[in-house]
Amino acid sequence: MELKDILWTNIFKGRRKKDEAVESILQQVPAFSHLKPKEISLLASIVHRREYKKGEYIFYQGDPGLGMYIILQGEVLIQYTDPDGNKKDLAILRDGDFFGEIALIDESPRSASAICRIDSEIIGFFRPDLFEIIEKHPKLGIQIVLKLAEIIAERLRRTNQEVTQLKTELEALKLALEQTNQK
């Protein structure tokens, strides 16, 4: 490359590609998928990008909930540690997956840890960022909060169904055990 080419090279070209990648991932997240391109661009301008190394914790179980995370590229393990110190892997999340969205609504402690399984690039969208949007762009902020509420409600419905199913199975096992003991 000649000196002339170096002087006139578009130094912002690489940054725009990264911005487009963030916007593309944000558009795929259910909490933001209903937003217009201009709103997605606004959101992309305030989210936080960070690279994590394999084995690095994004957050620990018990940490205060500060916001949600979206995997731009990589792999994240969600892991629960019971009171006896036993670890249970709950989920493995990959490119485009998101987690921790309840923290945008509620600052309760994290119910599990998030650990990078491979080197990963993660987007963080934090509670103060959401409040800034609500303050500066109330209509957009309300749209995001309502969509988050829908996502949380759907997860709660699924959890209720699973608990009901487990209760039914437990009752059936209990009944079978009682019948076995009566014989």
Rank of each mutant, 00 (worst) to 15 (best):
Y69N: 05
G65T: 08
I58H: 03
F59Y: 15
F59P: 07
F59D: 06
P64C: 07
Q73Y: 14
D82S: 13
G65C: 08
L90W: 00
N86V: 15
R94N: 15
N86C: 11
L66N: 10
L90E: 01
L90M: 05
D63S: 05
F59I: 10
G65A: 07
I71T: 02
I70M: 09
Y80T: 00
D82P: 12
D89K: 01
I71R: 01
G65R: 02
Y57C: 13
F59T: 09
I71V: 12
I58N: 02
Y57P: 11
P64Y: 10
R94P: 10
E75H: 04
I71N: 00
Q73E: 14
F59A: 08
L77T: 11
Y60F: 15
N86M: 12
M68C: 09
G62R: 04
D82I: 13
A91D: 05
A91E: 03
G85Y: 07
I70A: 06
D84P: 08
K87V: 10
Y80G: 01
P64G: 10
Y60W: 13
K87D: 12
N86S: 12
F59R: 03
Y69F: 15
D82T: 13
E75Y: 03
G65D: 05
K88E: 10
P83E: 09
I58L: 12
Q79W: 03
Y69V: 08
Q73D: 14
G62C: 07
D84S: 15
L77Y: 11
P64W: 06
R94L: 14
L72M: 09
Y69Q: 02
Y80K: 02
I71L: 01
